[in-house]
Design a protein around this nucleic acid. Structure first.
Length: 263
DNA sequence: AAAGCTGACAACCGCAAGATC
DNA sequence: GGATCTTGCGGTTGTCAGCTT
């Protein structure tokens, strides 16, 4: 498959060249992410609209993350796939910077060849319930986003610290480290919104959405802590080292691995 | 060293839904 | 209201590099 191959309509197919990428970037910066079928007309690029869109979405779009998925992202994919199935674009919405194609490839590479797990009746029930709920609910409106944003900012500027809140604040601090931007936190709140009512209330430590997220066999993780869900509207995943020195290893996005030390 | 295998990734295809004419 | 166009999604295939035999 080389760049010179052409299809029936004469479109160039195969890998994109740097020159083609440059033309596409210029086009999008001028005309935005739409009218893909007119790209060839404006730029002289001999690529179909579909091909241009795919190249942009999966490779050229700003903000895309490169490199391996983090353990957290892998966990999210596994959990969401268990509930949503092959809804790659939906799953991708909860992983900022990752594309549906990337997630789909990841899943097929790592799990696609495995045998289908035995059917779990309760899981199937919950899955059906969540899917029904997802159908009914529209995507969050901008004003909802602003509301969440605003409430998160209010949390940030809240200075009062009561002794009983100390632990919550500590966990909140960690969450802030793991999910550094409003967008990340919003993403989590969306996940909670969609799953909590039908999932967490019936879940056990063995098969729940959040509890199983970090259920690694790796010995360095000996304990999972559930932060106060009220803080962000979603559970988080904190891992304590086996030596219990209050040193938390966290991984998130491009921050890669970091350590969070308690006082 | 060479052939075969496997994982990772990019890209294409067909279809369906929505938008536009 | 129907035809056509555009866009987005999920499935599939092709390529390449690294590993194994």
């Amino acid at each position: 498959m080389k760049g010179s191959l052409t299809a029936e309509k004469g479109w160039t197919k195969g890998p994109w060249t740097h020159e083609e990428d440059k033309l596409l970037r210029e086009h999008v910066s001028l005309h935005g992410e739409s009218r893909w079928n007119s790209v060839s007309k404006f730029t002289g690029l001999n690529r179909s609209g579909k091909s241009c869109r795919l190249r942009w979405v999966n490779y050229l779009r700003p903000g895309l993350k490169k490199g391996q998925l983090t353990p957290l992202e892998e966990g999210i994919i596994m959990e969401l796939h268990a509930v949503l199935g092959n809804k790659w674009s939906t799953i991708a919405k909860y992983l900022p910077g990752r594309t549906d194609n990337e997630i789909k490839n990841y899943w097929r590479t790592h799990f696609g060849k495995r045998e289908k797990p035995k059917h779990n009746k309760n899981q199937e029930k919950r899955k059906a319930k969540v899917q029904k709920q997802l159908k009914q609910e529209q995507q969050p409106q901008p004003q909802e986003y602003d509301m969440i944003k605003s409430s998160l900012y209010q949390e940030e500027i809240k200075n009062e610290t009561k002794p009983s809140e100390m632990q919550d604040n500590k966990q909140q601090e960690i969450m802030g480290f793991m999910y550094p931007t409003i967008e990340h936190q919003y993403s989590l709140s969306l996940m909670h919104r969609e799953f909590s009512s039908s999932f967490l209330d019936t879940t056990t430590a063995d098969d729940g959405l959040w509890f199983s997220l970090w259920d690694f066999d790796e010995p360095q993780f000996s304990k999972c802590v559930m932060p106060n869900q009220a803080n962000f509207g979603a559970g988080g995943d904190l891992m304590q080292n086996q030596d219990k020195t209050s040193c938390f290893d966290v991984a998130y996005d491009n921050l890669s691995y970091g350590k969070y030390m308690f006082d």
